[in-house]
Design a protein around this nucleic acid. Sequence first.
DNA 1: AATGAATGAGCCTTCATTCAT
DNA 2: GATGAATGAAGGCTCATTCAT
Lengths: 206, 206, 206, 206
Amino acid sequence: MASRTNPAPTAEPTDRRQEILNAALACAAQAGVDAVSIDGVRARCGASVGSIYHHFGSREGVVAALFFDIFAEQSRSVQAQLDAAVGVEAGVQALVTGYLDWVVAQPVQARFLFQARGPVANGPRSAELAEAARGRNQALLAWFEPHRRGGALRDLPCELMPSLVMGPVQSYCRAWLSERAGQGGLPSPQVYRSELAAAAWRAVRA
Amino acid sequence: MASRTNPAPTAEPTDRRQEILNAALACAAQAGVDAVSIDGVRARCGASVGSIYHHFGSREGVVAALFFDIFAEQSRSVQAQLDAAVGVEAGVQALVTGYLDWVVAQPVQARFLFQARGPVANGPRSAELAEAARGRNQALLAWFEPHRRGGALRDLPCELMPSLVMGPVQSYCRAWLSERAGQGGLPSPQVYRSELAAAAWRAVRA
Amino acid sequence: MASRTNPAPTAEPTDRRQEILNAALACAAQAGVDAVSIDGVRARCGASVGSIYHHFGSREGVVAALFFDIFAEQSRSVQAQLDAAVGVEAGVQALVTGYLDWVVAQPVQARFLFQARGPVANGPRSAELAEAARGRNQALLAWFEPHRRGGALRDLPCELMPSLVMGPVQSYCRAWLSERAGQGGLPSPQVYRSELAAAAWRAVRA
Amino acid sequence: MASRTNPAPTAEPTDRRQEILNAALACAAQAGVDAVSIDGVRARCGASVGSIYHHFGSREGVVAALFFDIFAEQSRSVQAQLDAAVGVEAGVQALVTGYLDWVVAQPVQARFLFQARGPVANGPRSAELAEAARGRNQALLAWFEPHRRGGALRDLPCELMPSLVMGPVQSYCRAWLSERAGQGGLPSPQVYRSELAAAAWRAVRA
DNA sequence: AATGAATGAGCCTTCATTCAT
DNA sequence: GATGAATGAAGGCTCATTCAT
């Protein structure tokens, strides 16, 4: 929708689309996904109501676009660690630490992903979300498959794998993120980085 | 707020309070927690706007009351299986299967619990929620403690225990519940009941 | 919805419902039915947005309620002249003059009826409108029937009767009303009162 | 505004102007004149927003242009039957049947004419509309004049003539058109073609 | 002639909440 | 305990229109 080739040498380098998404994320960070309102977004970036609708079609469209952008970025981040890993054990651990490191590095985005999944899943782009999630799981399983066949991994139902590997780390990260600037809250996931990685390996090794 | 010792001289045995909560749950089941509105509730049960406010004080009050009711019921359900378990391993597995069985038996309530946690945690009863969650975790840890000291359990940080034990089953149940009456969806958690229980044990045994 | 028994001895005797309808008519008179907006109505009577919705459910609801009120009043007005008429010829003429007199006496309402019919007919109360229109036609035909059988009226298809009797007077009144405070406009229908009445009789007499 | 002598070196033979008007008519046919929006038109034909403004200047301009086009076409159609008629009676009847035949042949356009008259009459081209209407009436009266002077026609006020002659057929056609693809609706005007023509003659003959 | 991004006023509607009865 | 009329802030969305390219 919006294309711009090297637009201004001075100030506004980012295009409207991205400005709007940034503003939406800022709204969500402050008061939750439900607080992402057209007017709130409009107030943060300079965009007009009409411009937001021109680019995203609806409030839902803004949230969904942001969700998919962040989702993809997170996937890339995890994939990078996975690609760098050598061996089964390191691979399994990379999935955990790749996820954990990204959450710690981008807590705002991570919180948004948790919060926005429901709304997106129930919205008009639910099929797209299902497809993206399926794709990610397939990639994970495809990576596992040779090792499982080679006997390095326990023979578990493939529907269970994601939950067994990622369940604990997601559970902990979710709890950590859900605390509002906690004083007496949970320690950073970084503290348990190796424990969580090790637990994932124990869960699936032969 | 509402107590009734003389249940009604005439017909209706159920009290208003419960009718309202039932209606609220029905609203949430249909379109998510955010769709629980005073007017939506009013339309489902016969209660008037004023009556709802009389009993619960606010919309948030309705959601929170429902949340705590369900939360307590779920805790009771899990506790019952835990109480019946003999030995460490059986105990750990009871936590998983107790949770899993309740989710399968009460999927509507389970979905509500997932959805409403955020709103309740950010509302005026957040302290109460934190306390309830802490209490449940403490109970779990207290149950574990003697076995850990006895060497039957791995020496893990206690902040991690809940995620290691319950993370996978919660992850799977959440995924299962989030599918809207799926045709090609995930199998019932029951299918993986013993796998999930066994995995929990592997995660924490010495 | 709104009941009020002898509320105030001094000023506001009319209830909210009627105040809202009056305001809506005033809006329509000034700038057409399409200009009946919730906010315009709210500004004219003191009612709040919520109050309007409480009574009428939607903007469409306000317009429809006003339409049906005026429609009924017009029917009553015509019926009164018809009841007073003696003989076939006088009856046919009473239909025309009854209508014409009402239009001249209530031009604002008459204009509204012309303008709002389309929207109401395409809205959710279209069935009700069809029924009301059918009822009025049936009443007219039922009144004609004995005279037609008695040979005083030409044997015409009953679907055509309303158009033959009322078509000309409606056509003229519509043209007259559609002129905005005309200087060089059409003369008042009153000028052609007897001509139009006579024409109606010529159109259907045996 | 748009003239084209060199219709296009490549493919598309129809010009933009007409495509836009066709799209506008389609919008109106589906949901009424008020539903003719720039964006709706844009979505139907391929034209861009700017292109529509280039050709018609405003939304009102599109509606008005379409109205005058159709109005002129209808006039031509009626005039053709009138020209072919021989004698007073045939002439009067030709006015009715010419109108009726056109409505039946072009119901979509006819409905648009009924719906759009108000908006156009209140818009910036109202004078033009008044002139067109006056012109048509003058033509009709001019055609009548010699016959009236010759005593073949009743001596009626000329303001009344259009309503007396065309009122019934317009009334019936309007009612017929306003039914949405009716199942139990009114019969086609064709069914009463000769009745309506005869009635018009009875209304004005000496 | 054409394009489409941007604008912002204006609209309808929902909703939590209050309060007199 | 219960009722429902009234309130008004807030939100989503449509739409005609402008303008730089």
